[in-house]
């Protein structure tokens, strides 16, 4: 039960941490939607949006290096799309190269698409990281529920969250047992895959049996498909100020973008 990689820093305290999770979730959705709607190559607007996220990161007091490293999760996808860029044929050629008899040219249009997509993806993920590292997962679930996500789905997600820790502990134990039997340092690849497959199979059987036991004990305690919780979400004056501040800056940026 020491898996701090799950919602790290969400237990700290700052102005952003204290906001109502609903405020933060809606703010994230609005921000990301605005960023995604922007046309390609609006570099000035991108940098203004970046200032907004940067301000939020500073106020939230989550370490900047942590947020930066987390945001690198999009890199593999960006690289894969970047590989396609040389094949954009339309547009003005920026530079070209030959691989054997294969003529590849990189156009300005291609580079512009890549740059814009990268900027948008990065801005979106930064805001998402601010949201998730200042809000605990259970509060995000409460926010999702008040945004009319079906209750059953939220309950399933809260069960998932609860049992991630238990099953991760189980996997760690299995991994330790496997590695202490020399898994990493030899054996054919097919044998290694078979070992992992057997571990996952064992984990599946144990998870399924656990699910049956959990359900039986829930029924024994009167579970009827509903959960009753003390809902303690409240919209405070701080949320109003936050909404006004963020709303004003986003509106100004949008207006500026429309004017130029």
């Amino acid at each position: 039960m020491k898996h701090s990689f799950l919602d790290k820093y969400s237990d700290k305290d700052s102005l952003i941490h204290r906001l109502d999770p609903r405020t933060k979730l809606v703010a994230a959705l609005v921000f990301i939607a605005l960023v995604v709607l922007l046309p390609h190559a609006s570099w000035l607007t991108y940098s203004l949006y970046f200032t907004v996220v940067a301000a939020l990161i500073i106020i939230s007091r989550v370490p900047v290096t942590y947020i930066f490293l987390r945001s690198l999760v999009i890199v593999p996808f960006v690289l894969m799309v970047a590989l396609f860029i040389p094949f954009f044929k339309e547009g003005v050629e920026a530079f070209s190269f030959n691989i054997f008899s294969w003529h590849l040219s990189v156009t300005y249009e291609g580079l512009e698409t890549l740059g814009s997509v990268m900027a948008k993806a990065w801005l979106s993920i930064l805001f998402l990281i601010v949201l998730t590292s200042t809000t605990t997962f259970s509060n995000i679930l409460k926010a999702l529920e008040s945004l009319k996500i079906p209750r059953v789905l939220v309950m399933i997600m809260s069960f998932m969250y609860r049992y991630i820790f238990v099953l991760t502990d189980e996997v760690m134990r299995m991994k330790q047992a496997r590695d202490s039997r020399n898994f990493g340092s030899g054996g054919k690849r097919l044998w290694q895959i078979k070992t992992v497959g057997n571990m996952i199979g064992t984990l599946f059987i144990r998870s399924y049996e656990r699910g049956e036991r959990v359900y039986a004990s829930m029924v024994a305690r009167g579970f009827d498909g509903h959960s009753r919780t003390l809902d303690r979400l409240c919209f405070k004056p701080a949320d109003v100020y936050f909404v006004i501040a963020l709303g004003t800056s986003l509106t100004l940026i949008t207006l500026l973008n429309l004017l130029y």
Binding site: R162, T168, E170, V171, S207
Partner: peptide, 23 residues
């Protein structure tokens, strides 16, 4: 109503199984 805990735990199973890397 059995599907609520069962689907949740099997989702956690997928999460945990994805932690097992193989070369």
């Amino acid at each position: 109503e059995k599907h609520i805990p069962m689907m949740g735990i099997l989702a956690a199973f997928i999460f945990a199984a994805q932690m097992l890397n193989f070369p």
